[in-house]
Design a protein around this nucleic acid. Structure first.
Lengths: 150, 150
DNA sequence: CGGTATCCTCTCCGATACTG
DNA sequence: CAGTATCGGAGAGGATACCG
């Protein structure tokens, strides 16, 4: 989730059913943040070791400089990651998990591990699904009337 | 986005499977699904019990009918959730975790539990961050000329 | 009840360029 | 090295309406 700015959902929580309500709402708000794809990966990398900006840029292939910066800012604001600037000539900035971030480490690790362990299962499931359903779901329709003139 | 990174000193799985760039890419793709805000919550709910469509619509307040449908189809395609239609009138459709989905249950549960346990920590961290930084980071800063009427 | 189909907006995020 | 500024495309997701 790249906007560390709060999301403001003014929904109808008052009339919700008993079991899952207020707490789930707030949890969902946080989940939106920690569940972000880049956040999880960055968190995972920082779980391994303290890292510098460029180091993360290399270790998380595919992330852009801007998105990494924004992601780190968000994690820092949420108190999961700390940023330490060493006032030396070429700037040197270290990122590491805070104690709060450490409490997430195991969960994030198991999430990432699960993903790697079940890549093939998911591939097979998708293949099978697409086979019996004639392709992936919800195709954006044929682009023959592709009028995007703006 | 392709990653022309041949060097990856990533981590544990880099050593076990040589083409880690490919695996990383796929892993990120899966993380996007698993890390999706609605998927995690739906998965969590189904971890508790088998549920019907409308039931989920009620217990996951804030989700729209369309998004729930899309989310469920995605989870079904990935083999995490199964859909069972009972040919009765009125229609009755059950959703539940597949065995593969069950293997994710613990991780999802601990993720959700973590958010519940640390809501206050994060609130405090944000408050403190905003205080010392003069507000939340980097709002998109809408130009005056970009005002939209709604 | 359990969905699709459309439309439309808002956010994400990549590419590029510039700075301390 | 470690960012920020700006632009633009793509897609997520909400509202609404309709169907088997």
């Amino acid at each position: 989730m790249l906007s560390p700015f709060g999301d403001l959902e003014t929904s109808m929580w008052a009339t919700s059913c008993g079991a899952a309500t207020e707490a789930d709402h707030r949890a969902r708000e946080i989940l939106t943040r920690v569940g972000d794809k880049w956040s999880v990966i960055v968190l995972y990398q920082l779980g391994e070791d303290t890292m510098r900006f460029t180091e993360l840029l290399r270790t998380v292939p595919g992330i852009s400089q801007r998105v990494l910066a924004v992601t780190l800012r968000g994690l820092e604001r949420d108190g999961l990651v700390s940023r330490t600037v060493h006032p030396v000539v070429p700037p040197h900035v270290d990122y590491r998990l805070t104690p709060l971030g450490e409490t997430l480490k195991e969960t994030v690790t198991s999430l990432v591990r699960w993903t790697h362990e079940h890549l093939d299962d998911i591939d097979r499931a998708r293949e099978s699904y697409d086979e019996t359903n004639g392709g992936p779901p919800r195709r954006p329709a044929v682009p023959d009337s592709d009028l995007r003139s703006r």
